[in-house]
Design a binder for these strands. Structure first.
Lengths: 152, 152
DNA sequence: ACGTAACGGTACTTAATAAGTAACATGACT
DNA sequence: AGTCATGTTACTTATTAAGTACCGTTACGT
C-alpha cells in the first residue's frame, strides 16, 4: 500500500484550526495538504466522531476545533483516526502448527509490540499544542544562532 | 502493499536449517512456507550475500547454514534482508515550507524513530538460537503445568 | 422562496510494493 | 548425458491508502 500519512496530515490541520477563529472548509484544507476535499472529509470524519472537531454545513460552514489543542493528545488523534496500521511488517499465520514457526512469529511480534509501545508512549506524552511550542523554541534557537553568527 | 513477512519467514527457515545436516532445497522450503521456490531463492539471496547461509546447485544441492545460529543475531537477519521498511506510516513531504506542517512531520517522525530504535534493540538482544531455547522453555513449562494438573 | 456553499456519503480509480508465478540459462552431481 | 537445483529475469496478483467524481442534504444569505 501507499504510506499512510494521515496522522501527520491531521496534526498539521489541527494546528491550523487552532490558529483560526472561523471555520475552514474542506476545500481550503485540501489545498493545504495538496489533496482534494473529499479525502479531507473522509479523514476528518473520525475526528468529528471523537469530539475533537466539529463541522457545519452551508454558507460559512467548515471545520472548527471542539476543544483546545492543549487538551488533545497525539494518542487521541491517532485513536480518532482508527489507530491506523503502524507496521509494514508482520507474520503470516497466526496459529502455525510448526513449533519453529511459532518461535519465529513470537520473536517478530514481540519486537513489533515493543516498538508499538514506544510509539504510543511517544504520542501520549504530547498534546498537539506542544508541537507548536516546540517549533517556536526551535525557531527562537535558530534565530539566536543566526544573530550570534552575524556578530562573529 | 501486502504485509511484509520476510523476517519471520526467514527466521523460521533458519531454525529448520539449524536442525538439518543436509542441504534443504528451495522447493522444500517453499512447502514449509506455503509458497513457491522462486520466492524462496529471491529472499534467501540476501542471506547468502551476508554469509549467513550458503547454496549449492545440482544434485543434492540446496541451502545450508554457513555459521551456527548462536552467532546469528536477529539484527543481522533483518539487515541481510535489506532492512525492509518497518512502518506503514510516514510523512508526505520531507521539507515542507509550512512551519506547522514541519512541526507535525517532526512529531510523527520522532515517534516512529523512537519505535524503530526499540524494534532494533529487541532484535539485537537475541540470537536465532535463543528463539529455539525460549520455545523449549515454553514447552517445558507447559508440560510441567499439565503434569501438575494431572496430579491434582 | 431560491440560490449557493458546504458537508456527508457512496463508488470508483490509481499508486506502491511484497507476494506470488512462470520460464529459462547455468552449474553440479551421479 | 541426464537430471536436479540454483540464479535471474520478467510478469501478475493482492492489498490498502490516496486520489477522484458525483450527488444528496443542509444551512446560510439575499
Amino acid at each position: 500500500m501507499r504510506t499512510d500519512n494521515r496522522l501527520s496530515r491531521i496534526l498539521h490541520v489541527l494546528m491550523h484550526l487552532g490558529e483560526s477563529d472561523e471555520p475552514i472548509t474542506s476545500d481550503m484544507i485540501g489545498q493545504m495538504l495538496g489533496t482534494n476535499p473529499s479525502l479531507v472529509r473522509r479523514t476528518m470524519g473520525g475526528l468529528r466522531e471523537a469530539g475533537i472537531v466539529g463541522s457545519t454545513k452551508g454558507h460559512r460552514g467548515g471545520w472548527l476545533l471542539e476543544k483546545p489543542l492543549t487538551e488533545v493528545s497525539l494518542t487521541e488523534v491517532y485513536a480518532a483516526l482508527g489507530e491506523p496500521k503502524l507496521f509494514a511488517m508482520g507474520t503470516s499465520d497466526d496459529t502455525p502448527t510448526c513449533l519453529l514457526e511459532q518461535a519465529a512469529n513470537a520473536a517478530t511480534q514481540n519486537a513489533l509490540e515493543a516498538a508499538r509501545m514506544t510509539f504510543l508512549k511517544s504520542l501520549s506524552s504530547q498534546k498537539v499544542s506542544d508541537l507548536i511550542d516546540e517549533k517556536r523554541e526551535e525557531i527562537a534557537a535558530f534565530q539566536k544562532r543566526r544573530e550570534k553568527a552575524q556578530s562573529d
